[in-house]
């Protein structure tokens, strides 16, 4: 089979993403973000995100087609995120994808957003070997996956039991009086801080927690510990050392993410780790992962940053892999599934 030309549509959170791939070649990746509209609320407001998707969809699709230099009629298939994510937001992409597929008489593939974060790596030009462990970290999810085969065998090892890591960054940023989104702000504030200044807790890392939650994450206790620390200093009339608090908090998040991901690789005898999700933009996370993977003999894969954040190219790339594997399209009956399990790669 020749490489299929696939359009990918992603609307699971606050980015309206439309990407176009030809097999494993990226042709276009256009993203419209409603992030600024959420800034004053300190987090993603689902209804604002959904309204923004509706407005952004047509212009985003048109610029993706222009960027790729293809027309809608040229497409071989359409792929769309059906979950997990915010249901009202997902529905915009699903409705648009279904209508487009009918108008163009093209097959439609409803795919899993999290597996899309893994699938995007096929666009890197180097063959990804399996199995691999994947650590996906964003404002919406924090998940550790075991990928034995991209199109047929993905297993959830663990995930956050409360906040996503990105949310923890947002909440701690607010606590320190820094703007939204918190990730880049904490990063900037931490630049001159001492990551060892304050020993913040590592969630679900005590032996008793590890029994039940070996690969799960928890960030709400960490956030509370930071809040307590800041309040204690303010109550005592002391100046909060923002740089040290930011650096120490970031270190706690990064430490627990990387420690658990490497433990999974070692426990399962998988010498590969793939990173994905918007929080991968955090330089400290990439550095610590590189350092510890190097020390443990684990091959580390980090897709280009523009492909780590939520985007349509990852959905198109996964769709193309499913087509190349001979999988049947999804039909028209599927809906949004805010908690779609990773085992459902194609709905």
């Amino acid at each position: 089979m020749t490489a299929p030309l696939v359009l990918g549509i992603e609307t699971s959170c606050d980015e309206t993403g439309v990407g176009i791939v030809r097999g494993e070649t990226l042709l276009a990746n256009v993203i419209a973000s409603s992030m600024e509209e959420h800034a004053r609320y300190g987090g993603v407001v689902p209804e604002i995100a959904a309204r923004a998707h509706l407005e952004a969809f047509t212009p985003t699709l048109e610029s993706a087609l222009a960027e790729a230099g293809v027309s809608l009629a040229d497409l071989d298939a359409i792929a769309v995120t059906s979950g997990p994510g915010l249901s009202g937001a997902l529905m915009v992409g699903i409705a648009a994808a279904k209508a487009l597929a009918i108008a163009l008489d093209k097959p439609l593939y409803a795919v899993n957003h999290l597996v899309g974060h893994v699938g995007v790596d096929v666009l890197s030009g180097e063959e990804l070997e399996y199995p691999t462990v994947a650590l996906l970290v964003s404002g919406g999810h924090t998940s550790l996956l075991l990928v034995r085969d991209l199109v047929s065998d993905v297993e959830l090892l663990g995930e956050t039991i409360d906040d996503a890591a990105g949310e923890a960054f947002d909440k701690v940023a607010r606590l320190l009086g820094l703007p939204y989104p918190g990730g880049p702000e904490i990063d900037r504030a931490a630049r001159d801080g001492d990551p060892q200044a304050i020993r913040f807790p590592r969630g679900l890392s005590l032996p008793k927690d590890l029994e039940k939650h070996r690969y799960d994450f928890s960030f709400s206790g960490l956030k509370t510990a930071v809040a307590r620390h800041v309040e204690r200093m303010r109550d005592a009339g002391e100046v909060v050392p923002v740089a040290d608090v930011a650096a120490s908090f970031r270190e706690a998040v990064v430490d627990v993410l990387v420690t658990k991901a490497i433990a999974a690789c070692q426990d399962l005898g998988v010498p590969r780790l793939l990173l994905g999700g918007g929080v991968i933009a955090n330089a400290r996370l990439r550095d610590v992962a590189a350092e510890r993977c190097g020390a443990s003999g684990i091959e580390l894969r980090i897709p280009p940053l523009a492909l780590c954040t939520d985007n349509g190219a990852m959905i198109a790339a996964l769709g193309a892999q499913l087509i190349l594997a001979g999988r049947e399209p999804s039909g028209m009956e599927f809906g949004s599934d805010s908690t779609l399990p990773v085992t459902e790669i194609l709905v």
Partner: peptide, 10 residues
């Protein structure tokens, strides 16, 4: 969303 996308496609 469906109406807009359908119109674009057709």
């Amino acid at each position: 969303a469906a109406a807009n996308a359908f119109a674009l496609g057709a």
